[in-house]
Design a protein around this nucleic acid. Sequence first.
DNA 1: TTGTAAGCGTTATCAA
DNA 2: TTGATAACGCTTACAA
Lengths: 340, 340
Amino acid sequence: MKKKITLKQIARELDVSVSTVSKALRDSIEISEDTRQKIKAFAKLYNYKPNNIALSLKNRKSKTIGVIIPEIVHHFFTTVISGIEQVANEKGYHVIICMSNNSFDKEVINMELLANGSTDGFILSVAKETQQKQDYHHLTEVINQGMPLVMFDRVIEEIECDKVIIDDLNATKKAVQRLIDLNCKKIGLITTVDYVSVGKLRTDGYVQALRENKISVNPDIILKVEDFDNSEEEIQAFLIGKELDGLFAVNEHFAIYAIKAFLNQGLKVPEDVSVIGFTNGELSRQFIPSLTTVSQHGVEMGAKAATLLIKKLESEEGVEEPYETITIETSLIERNSTKR
Amino acid sequence: MKKKITLKQIARELDVSVSTVSKALRDSIEISEDTRQKIKAFAKLYNYKPNNIALSLKNRKSKTIGVIIPEIVHHFFTTVISGIEQVANEKGYHVIICMSNNSFDKEVINMELLANGSTDGFILSVAKETQQKQDYHHLTEVINQGMPLVMFDRVIEEIECDKVIIDDLNATKKAVQRLIDLNCKKIGLITTVDYVSVGKLRTDGYVQALRENKISVNPDIILKVEDFDNSEEEIQAFLIGKELDGLFAVNEHFAIYAIKAFLNQGLKVPEDVSVIGFTNGELSRQFIPSLTTVSQHGVEMGAKAATLLIKKLESEEGVEEPYETITIETSLIERNSTKR
DNA sequence: TTGTAAGCGTTATCAA
DNA sequence: TTGATAACGCTTACAA
């Protein structure tokens, strides 16, 4: 078991100074061809790799991006991460991922941990609990310290930073409009409680779509799910006797639960009732009937977020660039839960 | 924008030495109550947090576990990560996750990156490509440098390190036995190519189960999928005219694709053909019919892997503890793709 | 062409 | 009770 070798050890072995070794390995012209060769050969032999920690400390940057997401067990987030990774790796950055598990405390802890030198900037989608508590001190703190922060998907209006979002409101509006065009008369909504920013926006989109078509909004056919864990039963119970012919759900799980409930009631999807969901995950693709859904283009979102962050990281010190909010286009993927 | 404050700055402001500040903040009894109070108040005011990078360099450890997984877009891995996080956080470790995307090169790069100081040890499930190439130099190197490595799920026999696996062979055997007990006479298998270690083991389990029941193994009803991306079509084509009354698939996707193919052929599941899959993911739960499947208990696996790693990390220097291989119990979750 | 020394932020040892 | 110094591994300005 041979421990990692350091510059110092190489220097000692070859009887030169540490700086000579350092320079030689970085191909400095200061060093003679001879010594350079010798040192490089030796370093190669012993498989020398510079210590990242030391480099980070010296350069005061880690070339690392910290990503904090509410839950990894969610297809959308995994696609975003892919996008982040692609861009980051291309630009020589390293990505580390932490989960908040939708807990405020864990979000704070993770941020503080990473903020203390491990990371040059953050890409973050806030925890549900944080949106509920509306306590953003950890975010402002990080920003104040000069660490760039890019928020995506679940963003916080009041915080000034770069943001990558989708146009939740209009995406929903378009989806609901599609249901209306399909001749649905009684369109239900399954959404989340209002403090979840995207849930709220999607609810608004639903309402607007109806209004624009002079359809009155009936609160009886709107369900705001509080607790994801019991949502299946809740949705099942909610849908009894509602006689809907259309339904929009703010994520794919709610949509699938709804379809199941309809099927249980002996209804046919899409013949009797058309269903559109949100998030183009595995479930949407594989379920029978496959789910018509709003695709959020997670990879693109991640890529954009990483691009924004790296731009900030590499901008001249002091040159204050304005914050951007980028909206990613969504698309409606039509499958078999809606009529053609 | 106030940058992070350092010990040095506090020292300068309060006109004491850096070491006094350091000691005061760590509640050293060497420092008088008075100065200690003063320093602590000041530090609090300026929200001092020690720089992790500096600490890592000084202590030559990062209190960080590096996790490298083939693909995050896979429910099983996300559950493993949850397990790792739970144990790690409990013991004061930080988890950073990197993806190899099943690429050998990326696995190597990520490991080298993390190995250079960022991480004290690794938890890893090897990339498919690595298993294929059988090039393990990056793994042995890390081990030789004295960094503990725990492999899980897709492990490599030849590498000596702690391992956490499930008993793929017997889990499969039990599942296939269940099909046999259900009176299935012609049981097909959809598996991966043999270089994927778990695929091979599951294939072996299938073969053994048949043999033990004196059923001859018919290669015509065994499909070894090479390319995940086209697997749906491949499976569909394969299943034509096979007249199976039972099927075992080595993951939930293959199982679902198979069910779809059967349904397309006008067959009923489970009435005409019973299907059992592997991995208890969202798809298994939600699909209609819901899938009878082997649950791998990912959380438990992750927890165990983290426990093993931390044990190694915290064992006395030089005390060579033997490597362990821990087998996690699987369970067969019976749902609606098999008869009751 | 090579080496010395300072510094990144921290802690530990020893001296004052 | 406090402070100076060295060290972790590396880079770089400056000196030799």
